[in-house]
């Protein structure tokens, strides 16, 4: 099969497993891990994070709100004990990194040099952490500085994961000018659901994913493909080959599958084969 290029990253197919939706592969069928074009790790921070108290999930019509809060083991445990296993699955590994400050992002990038990962996905779009994350996405100049400095220390593939809210095209253009090789479009939408519990109503704030967001992110990909030259990696509500195909039609070069894998761990393979069938039918 011809390889697909996203900047310096070569993929055997356009499907990537989205950050935070496949654990570290422990319980996913091997065929799914081996069959993906690339694997994007859970968001990794400089130090371990416990994540948010429950509730962390709530369901909305065709959607899922999560507020995991970036629970992760931190850079050193990830690099020493987890990354080697991820690399053994075969597809290139892209590490999703989240710093609370520019300095933390840089230390993460430096810390991952030479560890075997093919790329970094800079997470400036997590809606579930107080510092860093989505705050960066309000500030195109800050993103320019951040990406430029990461580019100086990280020689491999470099993607920026955009938030779908805020000055999205300005942020995308800033990332492009600063030397990013691809843009992941996009993370979850800040959202809220009112949970009814025994004790009364409760607000659950988090990021919305799943089929509910597909038309929104599809529009975003369509718009961005007209404003930036960088390859776009679509991500938002893909649960079928048809969804993926629509994103490719709207200008995406590759795509990520997130929530669909939670619903059914074999969904990524099904999506790929449905996409293949669509491509064959023209």
């Amino acid at each position: 099969m011809p390889l697909l290029s996203l900047g310096s990253l070569k993929l055997k197919n356009p499907l990537m497993l989205a950050s935070g939706t496949w654990g570290f592969g422990e319980t996913l069928p091997q065929e799914v891990l081996k069959g993906a074009g690339a694997l994007v790790s859970k968001g990794i921070s400089l130090f371990p994070r416990e994540g948010n108290p429950p509730p962390r999930l709530s369901e909305t019509p065709c959607g899922l709100i999560n507020s995991i809060g970036l629970e992760n083991p931190g850079l050193s445990v990830f690099r020493e004990r987890i990354l080697p296993r991820l690399l053994s699955y075969g597809p290139p590994v892209v590490v999703n990194i989240l710093g609370e400050s520019e300095e933390e992002f840089l230390r993460l990038a430096e810390g991952l040099c030479g560890a075997g990962a093919s790329g970094l996905e800079v997470n400036i779009s997590c809606p579930n952490v107080k510092k860093g994350g989505i705050a960066f996405s309000q500030d195109p100049e800050g993103v320019f500085r951040l990406v430029k400095r990461i580019r100086e220390v990280w020689k491999g593939f470099l993607a920026v994961k955009l938030s779908p809210v805020g000055p999205v095209s300005e942020v995308a253009q800033a990332a492009e000018e600063a030397g990013a090789e691809a843009l992941t479009c996009a993370n979850t939408y800040p959202a809220l659901s009112v949970i009814r519990e025994g004790k009364g109503p409760r607000f659950h704030l988090g990021g919305l994913s799943g089929p509910a967001i597909k038309p929104l992110t599809l529009r975003l990909v369509y718009e961005l493909s007209r404003r930036v030259k960088l390859p776009l990696i679509a991500c938002g509500g893909i649960v079928s080959g048809r969804d993926a195909w629509e994103y490719l039609l709207c200008g995406a070069r590759a795509f990520q599958v997130g929530t669909a894998t939670l619903l059914d761990p074999r969904a990524p393979l099904r999506i790929l084969s449905e996409l293949d069938a669509l491509a064959k039918d023209g």
């Binding site: 939706t21 654990g23 422990e26 996913l28 994540g51 999930l57 899922l64 999560n66 995991i68």
Partner: peptide, 28 residues
């Protein structure tokens, strides 16, 4: 019991506070 999105440790959503800090995942 906890609300579950994946049932197999992928999402870290079914968290319940652990007695000595952190969260256990009900599904795994």
């Amino acid at each position: 019991e906890a609300v579950m999105a994946c049932g197999r440790g992928l999402c870290l959503g079914c968290a319940v506070p652990r007695r000595d800090g952190g969260y256990l995942k009900v599904c795994v």
